[in-house]
């Protein structure tokens, strides 16, 4: 077959594939989602009093003293363009960023007694939307959150423990604390 005839066949093939793979396949998956996995397919949206306040999968830029803070983010958790810093550890900009974050932790009183911050407290995530922090970073923030919120440290620590998720199925990934969930529980405890 000549190149022209092959190209005509190619164009027709592309049209057929568009119907099958561009419309049929996503539509079927979408339909299954609507019926069986509505919450997940819609983005695991979290509502308070019927109003959407976020997604449990996306971190938020918590800054107030009386709530738990998320990890540093290269995009301030804005949600429009995801991404990270791309900086290498040796980059002067990264050295400075780490020093600044360390200083901010000192200022907030979020550094543990040994002065060693949890690595996730000093580093920006890949997505800029990391919903989780390490249990260690959450515990480091507990005294400050207790002071600022008027709750006892025991109550706050207990909330952190309750909202710490272990590894998935016991062995996959890292233990973590979902910051939005934790702060929602914190708000509930203050009422």
């Amino acid at each position: 077959m000549s190149f022209t005839r092959q190209s005509v066949a190619a164009l027709r093939m592309l049209i057929v594939l568009t119907v099958l793979l561009g419309i049929g396949y996503p539509a079927v998956v979408w339909g299954v989602g609507r019926v069986a996995f509505h919450d997940q397919a819609a983005g695991s949206v979290v509502r308070v009093d019927g109003k959407v306040v976020g997604s449990s999968l996306l971190g938020q830029d918590f800054t107030a003293a009386d709530v738990f803070h998320s990890r540093p983010s290269a995009s301030s958790y804005s949600g429009d363009t995801s991404g990270g810093s791309n900086l290498a550890a040796s980059d002067p900009a990264q050295v400075k960023a780490i020093a600044d974050r360390q200083a901010a932790l000192v200022k907030d009183g979020d550094l543990p007694a040994d002065g060693l911050a949890a690595p996730d407290a000093l580093t920006a995530s890949a997505s800029g939307l990391d919903p989780d922090i390490s249990p260690a970073y959450a515990m480091d923030q507990a005294p400050r959150v207790a002071r600022a919120s008027g709750l006892s440290e025991t109550v706050v620590t207990k909330l952190v423990t309750e909202h710490t998720s272990g590894r998935v199925l016991g062995f996959l990934g890292e233990p973590r604390v979902n910051v939005l969930d934790l702060n929602l529980a914190l708000a509930a405890a203050r009422i």
Partner: peptide, 20 residues
């Protein structure tokens, strides 16, 4: 996710605007 929702700007629990 698997939906056709338009980008939606919400007022997050953190008190800032966030795009879902």
């Amino acid at each position: 996710i698997q939906n056709l929702a338009e980008p939606m700007t919400i007022h997050s629990l953190a008190g800032a605007d966030q795009q879902l």
